[in-house]
Design a protein around this nucleic acid. Structure first.
Length: 635
RNA sequence: GCCUAUAUAGCUCAGUAGGUAGAGUGCCACCUUGGUAAGGUGGAGGUCACCGGUUCGAUCCCGGUUAUAGGCUCCA
């Protein structure tokens, strides 16, 4: 007899020697058995046909579970691979995992896949699905597995097996005559995959290394119902409507031109958002005990050799020559900050010293990596370098975490945090790195923050805490970062005079909150879908006379609002009111003031609010007060 | 940088079996003075990304370059 414990704690007894998760599901309900695609037995994901031989905890996995989606998509990728091998014999398989919202499979093929091929492949997949082929699992000894895939010419699979640990269980899955190396589990049969869709083609290096051959990757997704697929495709379309590149064009915020790949141009309206963000930043930093500095964009090569950038960051830098000497365009603000610190003697009483800098940096990014405002070659970092006593490290880091959190909260951003550790290319001893990493960990833990560890992704001078924000299609972008650095103070021989009258070495934090102003504006644009809050909106109020009889009154209101600093426009064009409203609406302007004879008579305005529509007549003076109040409160 | 694709008016796009192009929108002018998401008429606007080749002739075919998109790699 086997006792099965279910997630709700209830126990089912089976009068059998061997039970499968499918038996368990059937025992619970017919509906669940129909939806079941795999199971978790004592914490391990297994097929529905897995033999349970002892008392176990069993959870039935359906498409609704995150693990269920992964299994489902993974099974879909096997169907994709089978279809491709059927249509293009000789195609060698790479890997085909499930990813967020879908799956992909990498292929090595003489044939260059085209978008038309995707249609054919989808048809073949539909055929395979209709055949309802069972996924069957088999475990093989290592040598046998290697020989099996070698005989089939699947060299990448052989490589994968060879890299598995000695004691790993090697399993293969078969559906029809298609066999793939795979840990599983899978759905029971191909007909489970109700709504597959191939999405795109891309190149991808084998094992993600540019030293390896580039394989052809086919991306797809799949759902348990057609309606879910349609909903997903609709969501993707919706997200495209929020794309900051599209909105940036429509709202005249910024542009990128052929003449400056990766070097964005900002239009007047984009500059308003930028300047508002910078004003806010200055205000907040002043309150938080920062002083502002500005360091040069071009500095001599010797400085960059001293800082270690020459040795570690050269590939990303631009260079120039002045009077026969070599100069570098700064990719980071820190060396300049070091020089500012070092330009005078500091007492321990001055520390922590917080130098903020809105610094324009240039970095040579790969052309293929450029992406709107999110990845550019010139951007302004809202940087700061904090020089402090070793005893102040934790408090300072916690202070920065609070500051960043405060900024993101104002905009209503959700974010996640990563801790990046020592990279391959790094300066300084392991001990230093250990101490620095521990300090960051400690601050995160004392703040009770969840974080994931990003092994080997730190800056070359120190470990870092990264803050990631999401764009409209779910990609995340690093914005804020806090980096702890023992190296630069050492290399620049920075000192402070301690209580004992002797020189000591300060510790330093590099940090940004917005990250890059450009990227932050990109993220903000998508976050608000272009409908910026009043305090950021390039045009806050638009006055729209119904006929030219109200132009004088309109001009008077315009002047009054302008005088108190409201960003206001007067639409005195010879157009109908419906037309003016439509245009202001498309431009996502927060407030429209419609004025006709009635309003002129009563000293009112016909108020129309973005998102709420016509609010009727209000006294102009009341509106003015209200709008000023809202701007002040950053609504 | 690599893979795949794309590049036509300010913007969004159509088009040509290879005979130098068209719509909508925006812009300008005129008519219309209209009360909460597009009133009418007319006009201007393009070396069809750039360079080369094939051809009597190239926006179209071929090659290269540049830029852009989606990935890979990299990163704020």
């Amino acid at each position: 007899m086997i006792k099965v414990t279910l997630p709700d704690g209830s126990i089912k007894d089976f009068e059998l020697d061997i039970v499968t998760p499918l038996d368990v599901a059937l025992n619970i309900s017919k509906g669940l058995a129909k939806k079941a695609i795999a199971a978790k037995v004592d914490g391990k994901l297994v097929d529905l046909s897995y033999p349970i031989k002892k008392d176990s905890e069993v959870k039935i996995i359906t498409f609704e579970d995150p693990e269920g989606k992964d299994i489902f998509r993974h099974s879909s990728s096997h169907i994709l691979a089978q279809a491709v091998q059927n249509l293009f014999p000789g195609t060698i398989l790479g890997i085909g995992p499930a990813i967020k919202d879908g799956f992909y499979y990498d292929f090595d093929s003489e044939h260059k896949f085209t978008p038309e091929d995707l249609v054919k492949i989808e048809e073949e997949m539909a055929r395979i699905i209709k055949e309802d082929l069972k996924y069957t699992r088999k475990e093989l000894p290592r040598e046998e597995a290697i020989k099996f895939f070698q005989d089939r010419g699947e060299k990448y699979k052989v490589e994968l097996i060879e890299d598995l640990p000695e004691d790993a269980i090697i399993s293969i899955y078969q559906q029809g005559d298609f066999i793939d190396l795979c840990a599983g589990p899978h759905v029971p049969s191909t007909s489970f995959i109700k709504a597959p869709k191939l999405l795109s083609l891309a190149g991808a290096y084998w094992r993600g290394s540019e030293k390896n051959k580039m394989l052809q990757r086919i991306y797809g997704t799949s759902f348990s119902k057609k309606s879910e697929l349609d909903e997903y495709l609709f969501r993707v379309e919706e997200a495209k409507r929020r794309d900051h590149r599209k909105l940036g064009q429509e709202l005249e915020l910024f542009t990128l031109m052929d003449e400056g790949p990766g070097f964005p141009f900002f239009f007047p309206k984009g500059m308003i958002i930028r300047n508002e963000l910078e004003n806010f930043w200055r205000e907040l930093h002043k309150e938080s005990g920062y002083q502002e500095i500005k360091t040069p964009i071009i500095l001599n090569q010797e400085l960059w050799e001293r800082s270690g950038h020459w040795q570690n960051y050269k590939d990303n830098m631009y260079f120039t020559e002045i009077d026969d000497s070599n100069f570098c365009i700064k990719p980071m603000n820190c060396p300049g900050g070091m020089l500012v610190y070092d330009s005078k003697l500091h007492s321990y009483r001055d520390l922590p010293l917080r130098y903020g800098e809105l610094g324009l940096v240039h970095r040579h990014e790969l052309s293929g990596a450029l992406h709107g405002l999110m990845r550019v070659r010139a951007f302004t970092q809202d940087d700061a370098h904090i020089f402090m006593l070793p005893s102040q490290i934790t408090d300072e880091i916690k202070g920065v975490i609070d500051l960043i959190d405060k900024i993101y909260k104002l905009f209503g951003f959700e974010y996640h945090v990563e801790l990046s550790t020592k990279p391959e290319k790094a300066m300084g001893s392991d001990e230093m790195w250990e101490i620095a990493t521990k300090a960051l960990e400690k601050a995160l833990e004392e703040k009770g923050m969840d974080y994931i560890i990003n092994e080997g992704d730190g800056a070359f001078y120190g470990p870092k805490i990264d803050f990631h924000l999401m764009d409209s299609i779910g990609r995340t972008w690093q914005c804020g970062t806090i980096q702890l650095d023992f190296q630069m103070p050492e290399r620049f021989d920075l000192t402070y005079i301690g209580e004992d009258g002797e020189k000591h070495r300060p510790v330093m934090i590099h940090r940004v909150a917005f990250g890059s102003i450009e990227r932050f504006i990109g993220i903000l644009t998508e976050h608000y879908a272009g409908a910026f809050p009043l305090w950021l909106a390039p045009v806050q109020v638009k006055i729209m006379p119904i006929t030219d009889k109200q132009h004088d009154y309109g001009k008077k209101l315009y002047d009054e609002l302008k005088k108190v600093g409201v960003r206001v426009e007067l639409d005195d064009r010879n157009e109908k009111i419906g037309y003016k409203i439509r245009e202001a609406q498309v431009q996502k302007i927060p407030y429209m003031l419609v004025i006709g004879d009635r309003e002129v008579q009563d000293g009112t305005v016909g108020l129309r609010k973005r998102g709420e529509g016509d609010l009727g007549a209000v006294l102009f003076e009341d509106f003015k007060e209200q709008v000023l109040e809202e701007i002040k409160n950053k609504k």
